[in-house]
């Protein structure tokens, strides 16, 4: 036998179930899997629309239909459009950010189970799969944003530049919340298949508990009339989904004043504080989610 000619490359240590190699090591592994992320993203997008005429255009059909239905039913039939200027833009802003979060979370929660064939045969950083779900919704979000820009051109009014700065905290919340939820829910769904159905119901609740189809002031006014109103209002505003939608509207919805003359200014100093605290909490959540994922993902291949 000849002596080895190869030099020894980097090694990996595989640890028992329940032990982890640390968050920094995991982040490093994940960064090392960028190429894999791109390949999986390509697979998702190319695979989903393969053989269809509209192709990626299908990702626009659902939000546009939602825009139409909600615009007509909620806006005209129920009359919400009378108290909100540029109602179409208003709900579309809310919808695209809602879709960004909800698509990523619902796809993320089933990503480990749908990719079981892969997980049982090949080793790679498993966090890549929930991250791919997020990346897919980011791509869809990008196309939906283009529609929003067309909408601005039609209405002839554009959001102000300084308001666009609110998108910074928005994305700083969206990424950790969507990715973190994908991590926890995907690994729970391997163990308990009930998870994906609970997620569906949860997202339905989240949709109506976020001020997408109505201005947040409507909810505040209603809650003000209830007992323990202050607590309920705080509870409503503690919902990160609601906060993301509100901050996105602040950034991207041109009229900041409603027809009723009510100042549509969400972000006084209290609100900004709330927003940045939520940013902080979201990142803590992401780190916790990754720790849970790392601990539980050890038994994935056997549980699938």
């Amino acid at each position: 036998m000849t002596e080895p000619i190869r030099k020894i490359g980097p090694t990996v240590t595989l640890v028992p179930i329940g032990r982890t190699t640390g968050v920094f090591k995991d982040v490093k592994d994940l960064l090392g899997a960028r190429e894999l992320l791109m390949a999986l993203l390509n697979r998702e997008l190319a695979g989903r629309y393969k053989g269809s005429v509209l192709g990626i255009g299908w990702s626009l059909v659902r939000p546009l239909v939602m825009l139409f239905i909600y615009g007509v039913v909620v806006g005209q039939f129920l009359g919400a459009a009378r108290s909100v200027e540029q109602f179409g833009i208003f709900i579309f802003v809310g919808l695209i950010f809602w879709n960004l979060l909800s698509e990523s979370i619902s796809a993320g929660s089933t990503t480990l189970t749908t990719n079981s064939a892969l997980l049982k045969k090949v080793w790679f950083p498993r966090e890549v799969l929930p991250l791919t779900s997020f990346a897919v919704s980011v791509v869809n979000f990008f196309f939906q944003s283009l529609v929003l820009i067309i909408g601005y051109a039609i209405f002839g009014s554009w959001p102000s530049i300084e308001n666009l700065l609110f998108l910074v905290p928005v994305f700083l919340i969206v990424f950790p919340v969507a990715f973190g939820a994908g991590l926890i829910l995907s690994v729970l769904n391997v163990r308990f298949r009930d998870t994906q159905f609970i997620v569906e119901v949860g997202l339905l609740l989240g949709f109506w508990l976020s001020p997408i189809l109505y201005p947040w002031t409507f909810a505040m006014e209603f809650l003000a009339g209830l007992p323990a109103s202050n607590f309920l209002q705080q509870l409503y505003l503690a919902n990160p989904f609601a906060l993301v939608v509100m901050a996105a509207q602040q950034a991207l919805w041109p009229p900041m004043v409603t027809e009723a003359g009510l100042k549509y200014q969400f972000f006084d100093s209290v609100f900004s504080t709330r927003l940045w605290l939520t940013v902080l909490a979201s990142w803590v959540f992401l780190i916790l989610a990754q720790r849970i994922f790392a601990r539980l993902s050890g038994s994935i291949a056997a549980d699938l």
Binding site: G9, P10, V15, P16, I17, V122, S299
Partner: peptide, 16 residues
């Protein structure tokens, strides 16, 4: 290979 995680003990192997 890393597909299954051990219940106890450690494995060190090349990344490649």
């Amino acid at each position: 290979s890393g597909v299954l995680t051990p219940s106890e003990g450690f494995v060190t192997r090349p990344v490649a």
